[in-house]
């Protein structure tokens, strides 16, 4: 970090940086600003021309509607159960698979690894039909387990991919020493490699959680009963009925965004680091 005073690099002029940054921040944040503002407006203030920039009397009425008169709290719970379930399951499977890929050389390894990668890239829309039929046969449509399992398609390949590259960066010599001392492979994994990979595990977890929390299309197809519907579906229902209550929709959007915002802000470094490492190293 402490650079020697070398040749100064040419850069963008200050005014361009400033105006570019301001524009960027505006474009990225304005919709959320408007979402939050709309969520505390009364009906009358929502439906006026010209729009009101600052509500005269902010109201919690919309939040009351969302939290007490709708299914959103239930959907919130469903979302948590399903996201935590699929993230946890994916993580357990990925820890073993990544360790296998990172530490062993076996026949067909490159092929199996690219199978995992292809899984990540598959167009989900192309497999919703057979997945639906399969889940129906297994009696898993409209169950938590159905969605948790299906979400493995999204979370597992990426988790394996990210963790494998993480494990590879941990010196193998540590394990070799332990094996000479009589430790088994599993002991190596749980006593040496895993404790050293906590940042990697955390970024995988954040990524998997966010992806499943935001997932829409599988939930739309495989959860049609309100006992298992997730938040995205709940929100879509809210806004496509004939009389859209925009104040409530915006309040529900805020409720849905908050956990992600908190998670993202608190773990941003891990999130960005894991993402770029996983993708640029390929």
């Amino acid at each position: 970090m402490n650079k020697l005073p070398t040749l100064k690099r040419p850069g963008l002029p200050g005014w361009l940086i400033l105006s570019g940054s301001v524009l960027l921040v505006l474009v990225c944040l304005f919709p959320f600003w408007w979402m939050v503002l709309s969520s505390v407006k009364t009906l009358r203030e929502l439906y006026t021309v010209p729009p009101i920039w600052w509500p005269a009397a902010p109201t919690w009425e919309n939040y009351r509607t969302v939290l007490f008169d709708s299914n959103i709290p239930r959907y919130f719970l469903n979302s948590i159960i399903i996201s935590v379930g699929s993230t946890g399951l994916a993580l357990v499977l990925a820890i073993f698979a990544s360790y296998g890929f990172a530490r062993f050389n076996f026949k067909g390894k490159p092929l199996l690894q690219s199978f995992v990668l292809v899984g990540q890239l598959l167009p989900t829309a192309a497999i919703i039909v057979p997945l639906f039929v399969t889940l129906r046969v297994l009696n898993l449509v409209n169950t938590y387990w159905g969605l948790i399992l299906v979400y493995m398609i999204i979370t597992l390949p990426l988790s394996v991919w990210m963790l494998t590259s993480y494990f590879k960066n941990i010196p193998v010599e540590l394990e070799e020493a332990a094996i000479i001392d009589g430790a088994s492979r599993l002991e190596c994994l749980f006593r040496i490699t895993l404790p050293l990979s906590l940042p990697g595990l955390a970024s995988v977890m954040v990524y998997a959680f966010v992806t499943t929390w935001n997932e829409f299309i599988f939930a739309l197809c495989f959860a049609t009963d309100s006992s298992v519907k997730t938040l995205p579906i709940g929100l879509a229902e809210f806004s496509t009925e004939f009389n859209t209550d925009w104040g409530a929709v915006m309040a529900a959007s805020v409720v849905m965004t908050l956990p992600i915002a908190i998670l993202f802000l608190s773990m941003q470094r891990l999130f960005v680091g894991g993402l770029t490492a996983g993708a640029t190293k390929g």
Binding site: L29, F216, P232, S239, V249, T257
Partner: peptide, 23 residues
Amino acid sequence: VRSVTLVPWVVPGIVAATTWAWM
């Protein structure tokens, strides 16, 4: 600015959709 830039990407697609629909 870098953190703010990531916000549209992190936010659930459905939230982006409804917010833009309202705007």
